[in-house]
Write a protein that binds this DNA or RNA. Structure first.
Length: 676
DNA sequence: AGCCACAGCCTT
DNA sequence: AAGGCTGTGGCT
């Protein structure tokens, strides 16, 4: 790199060394990268006017001799190609200055020279929409400028540049504290704890997957996140504002049974351990339990389909009517509660339960005598059989009867008699054998019961006296669903593919990943915070509308206390991003990818509508004025009424002052660019 | 696309 | 300790 004392002017034209904005005659512009430098602060100045005209900044002139850390194998070639490419752009008379700037930017941020000749054309392949183009597009835009590879763990600097985590760490490890591309300083926290930009991860993974899919023959159906690509543990998505399992995506499902699988989960469906799910197995929480297929819903207590049957239930203490005797228990159906608003649980009943939905699913399992898996949660406090911690698999039960009766709260509830019928002993018993058929307990409440249902036909799951174990007497119902974690090519053409997989093109799915968490639309002027969350510039501005960086504090009118820093929490993760908000820079690489994807989507839609070729269109409207992109955010803004869309809670105790409201106009313009 | 759910974290 | 809050995922 350049001599350590050499630094260019920043985005506002201020010299990064002396911090003044030098007049034009004191600035020197690099002929290669067109960055302005302050003449007086340069360690080596050009000697003649002619030299000045052909001057190359210390960064560019050293590009060849100082390859970035991890390009040892590729040596100087990429840099030489890069410079040649920049020169080609500069000499292209057909481009406006703006276009040139845009292309330079793309190049310097890892713009692919992969294609050899037309370096920047990856972004202009709109309309074709071929899936492999998407990978090319990402390769052209997100390549780490150190190693020239598509990063598998991308990190984004506050100045809006993307690198591999490894390369970034290496760079920082060398003591560098400025961005390798624009020289903006890297905040200490980012340097010590870089965060992976998970939106980019998903996008890149998706593009790679798509490529491998198209490469090997017919296109495979695509799942928004394929099971095999999910992490082993539950994780929180970009959109989920609070971390924690309640708002988490499930992790990988380890077993190979379909979601509507009845009965025990056997060893053959457990490629991970080869044991199947064993009675007594305990998991941390419902999410983890889900991953092993014992009980899939992570909130609901019943897993089932009203016309098909119920596969499993959870005893979690949600219904006070439940009565647990270990080998048998009385279970209460779901519903009867007012869950309006955003409640998920509500202990008070306000209407009768009916045999519909999940309750009906349980009744089907009762009639058919299907085996039902049972898990008990530590939250069931009144039961002696509940585990101390976590969620435990207790084996197979059968529903022998069901009925309705007035519940403790007065409203009618659906009731089910579950009796254990597993080949393994229950976790609480020291018995070495599993269950034998047993007489049904006498249930007092049956006297007041209505709608009593008993099984009339042979139970599907029953005890075989000869084999001395519980088996399927009637073949298990065929699964109507597909296992999510095996490859989905070949064979069965009647398989159902999820709706979203059929309708969305790759570009559209990628665009979905690039949605702003605040407005839920595809980002315009995307910003990436140091905590690695992505937002529209305007949305982030609006979120902190009217807030100042510092908070004045007065002590009951007497004297002014030292101003206090105003904490501005990232809308995604509650990290303080006030420092970042002083001068956030648009992630241009991301922006250009979004641009292209939007063009592709738009054009493929038009193609679909017209069914004929579309002529080359001018892309003028998609261009964004240079000045708009990184104009300062003064953490100032605008119209408070626009801010509260239920996404942001106001803090009452704090009074903020608005400095000005100049940003409004720009803002409206940029938000009008939102498409899709 | 809307509804529903015996979660789990955070605030009071 | 109790109640509030809220993305997610499956069913309809």
């Amino acid at each position: 790199m350049a001599h350590d004392s050499d630094l260019p002017c920043d985005g506002d034209g201020r010299c990064m060394i002396c911090k003044i904005s030098p007049p034009v005659e004191e600035t020197l512009t690099c002929k290669t990268c067109v960055t302005p430098w302050h003449l007086n602060c340069l360690s080596a100045r050009p000697k003649t006017l002619a030299d000045a005209a052909q001057w190359e900044c210390p960064d560019c002139s050293n590009l060849i001799s100082s390859p970035p850390p991890s390009t040892a194998t590729s040596g100087s070639e990429p840099s030489a190609i890069l410079i040649a490419a920049i020169r080609a752009i500069e000499s292209d008379a057909s481009l406006s200055d703006q276009d040139k700037a845009k292309r330079r930017q793309q190049l310097l941020s890892g713009g692919g020279s992969d294609d050899g000749d037309k370096t920047t054309d990856a972004n202009n392949e709109a309309g074709v929409g071929g899936d492999s183009d998407v990978l090319k597009l990402l390769t052209g835009s997100f390549n780490c400028s150190f190693c020239m590879q598509l990063p598998d763990r991308p990190v984004t600097t506050p100045c809006g540049h993307n690198f591999c985590l490894k390369c970034f760490e290496k760079w920082v490890g060398q003591g560098k504290r400025t961005c390798a591309i624009c020289r903006a300083s890297i905040p200490p926290k980012m340097a010590s704890q870089p965060r992976i930009n998970s939106s980019l991860v998903i996008a890149i993974r998706m593009a790679k997957l798509t490529k491998s899919n198209t490469a090997s023959g017919p296109p495979k159906p695509y799942y928004s996140v394929l099971n095999q690509n999910r992490p082993d543990k539950a994780y929180t998505t970009e959109r989920a504002k609070k971390s924690g399992k309640a708002n988490a995506c499930s992790g990988k499902i380890f077993v190979t049974v379909p979601p509507d699988h009845f009965g025990p989960i056997l060893a053959e469906n457990d490629p991970e351990r080869g044991t199947g799910v064993l009675v007594g197995e305990t998991w941390e929480d419902r999410m983890e339990c889900r991953q092993w297929g014992a009980h899939l819903p992570h909130v609901a207590g019943i897993s089932g389909q009203s016309h098909y049957g119920a596969q499993s239930v959870a005893l979690s203490g949600g219904y006070e009517d439940d009565e647990d005797h270990g080998e048998w228990f009385l279970y209460t159906g779901s519903g009867g509660r007012d869950l309006s608003g955003n409640k998920r649980t509500n202990k008070t009943q306000s209407f009768d339960q009916k045999f519909e939905k999940y309750n009906e699913a349980l009744r089907v399992s009762c009639r058919k005598g299907y085996p039902v898996r049972v898990v008990r949660s530590h939250k069931e406090k009144r039961s002696a059989y509940a585990p101390e911690k976590g969620v435990r698999y207790d084996g197979i039960y059968r529903i022998e009867k069901c009925w309705r009766k007035p519940g403790i709260q007065g409203y009618k509830v659906c009731r089910y008699l579950f009796v254990r019928c597993d080949n393994d002993p229950a976790p609480w018993t020291s018995d070495e054998n599993g269950d034998r058929p047993r007489d049904l307990p006498s249930i007092k409440e049956l006297k007041n019961a209505t709608d009593v249902t008993e099984r009339k036909s042979t139970p599907s799951w029953d005890f075989d006296v000869e084999k001395a174990c519980w088996v399927w007497k009637v073949p298990a119902p065929g699964s109507r669903k597909q296992v999510d974690n095996v490859d989905v090519e070949d064979g069965n053409s009647t398989r159902k593919v999820r709706r979203k997989t059929q309708t969305l093109s790759v570009s559209e799915r990628l665009l979905k990943e690039f949605c702003c968490v605040i407005c839920h639309k595809v980002m315009t002027l995307p910003l990436t915070t140091p905590c690695a969350h992505n937002f529209c510039k305007s949305c982030l501005q609006e979120t902190f509308a009217g807030q100042t960086l510092m908070k004045e504090r007065t002590c009951e009118g007497r004297r002014t206390l030292r101003a206090q820093k105003n904490i501005m929490k990232c809308p995604s993760c509650s990290n303080d991003i006030s420092d970042y908000l002083k001068n956030p820079q648009v992630n241009r690489e991301l922006m250009s990818v979004i641009d292209t994807l939007q063009r592709q989507t738009k054009e493929s839609e038009e193609n679909a509508v017209l069914g004929e070729e579309i002529l080359n269109t001018d892309e003028k409207t998609d261009d964004i004025e240079e000045e708009d992109i990184n104009s300062d955010i003064d953490i100032v803004i605008v119209d408070e009424s626009k801010v509260n869309k239920g996404l942001k809670r106001k803090k009452d105790g704090e009074k903020m002052e608005t400095i000005s409201n100049k940003a409004k106009q720009e803002d409206d313009e940029s938000s009008s660019l939102v498409t899709v």
